[in-house]
């Protein structure tokens, strides 16, 4: 639907840059509750680059592993490699997450609306309903994390005005929504996509465009978004990847291209 736009760079795909940009969002020392797939790829990349002291916590009970490439599940033995503790769901979802000890919850794609509410349960209504896997630990992450980081491909259907079903709470109906529901208002959301970075406006709570991938225009982002996001006062351009980041991602972290699509170049997006 979007014509081939100007290339994001000659040597990397937008998907690769999306993972790299999400990795940059993690600060050294962050304790990160991470799902498999692109979030784990980005977190491992952060550990291998600017944030060696990022601590991973994985839902199945795994604490501080040094994951081996490339795990495909929270129960994949590769995520358990050299962990300090292999425990239980209660220990990580209860004793770390609900206890308030996790800095960042890092989730993969689903449906995300204007107020950063997330749907991973059911899309559509009536006879066109499509059942999705459900919450898993996502509701728990969104309920208890101070920062929520989401990585997802930018498609209109993924960014509706309002989710068909709120599996995991963002800002609910806007300012004050979390407090009214009984959740902590100390909460921020960043959504990194292959087109842009969206962040919640601190006043209105709505997601707005904070950064653009190189070569992507605001119009392109608007066309791929089901609601109409505001544009932050100063929109930055996402920095291109360094050779080291690309090499790590391609040669060490996902050498078999389990998650990174080989065919996707800078000029051919999935849409």
């Amino acid at each position: 639907m979007t014509p081939a736009s100007s290339p994001a760079g000659p040597d990397h795909s937008r998907q690769e840059l999306m993972v790299i940009e999400a990795a940059r969002d993690l600060r050294d020392g962050d304790i990160v509750f991470v799902g498999t797939g692109l979030p784990m790829l980005a977190t491992t990349l952060a550990q291998r680059t600017h944030a060696p002291n990022v601590v991973m916590v994985i839902e199945s009970g795994v604490i501080a592993p040094q994951v081996r490439p490339t795990p495909i599940s929270v129960s994949d033995p590769k995520v358990m490699h050299r962990a300090v503790k292999l425990g239980t769901l209660r220990e990580v979802l209860g004793c770390l997450l609900q206890r308030g000890m996790i800095d960042v919850g890092f989730l993969g794609g689903a449906q995300i609306d204007r107020f950063a509410n997330i749907n991973s349960t059911v899309v559509g209504r009536g006879s066109t309903q499509r059942r999705l896997p459900g919450s898993g630990g996502a509701n728990d992450m969104a309920s208890h994390c101070r920062r929520l980081l989401i990585i997802t491909h930018h498609e209109r259907r993924r960014f509706p005005e309002r989710c068909d079903y709120v599996t995991s709470p963002g800002f609910l109906d806007g300012p004050g929504g979390r407090e009214r529901a009984g959740l902590s208002p100390d909460f921020a959301v960043t959504v990194v996509t292959d087109l842009a970075v969206l962040e919640n406006d601190p006043q209105t709570c709505a997601l707005r465009i904070a950064a653009l991938m190189p070569g992507v225009t605001v119009e392109e982002v608007l066309a791929a978004t089901g609601f109409r996001p505001e544009v932050a006062p100063e929109v930055r351009t996402v920095a291109p990847p360094t050779p080291d980041q690309l090499r790590l991602l391609r040669d060490e972290l996902d050498p078999e291209r389990v998650y990174l699509k080989a065919e996707e170049s800078a000029t051919t997006s999935r849409r």
């Binding site: 349960t121 309920s143 709120v166 609910l172 529901a181």
Partner: peptide, 10 residues
């Protein structure tokens, strides 16, 4: 008791 689920359609 839990503080999960609050505000959601769960």
């Amino acid at each position: 008791p839990t503080r999960s689920l609050l505000g959601s359609d769960l």
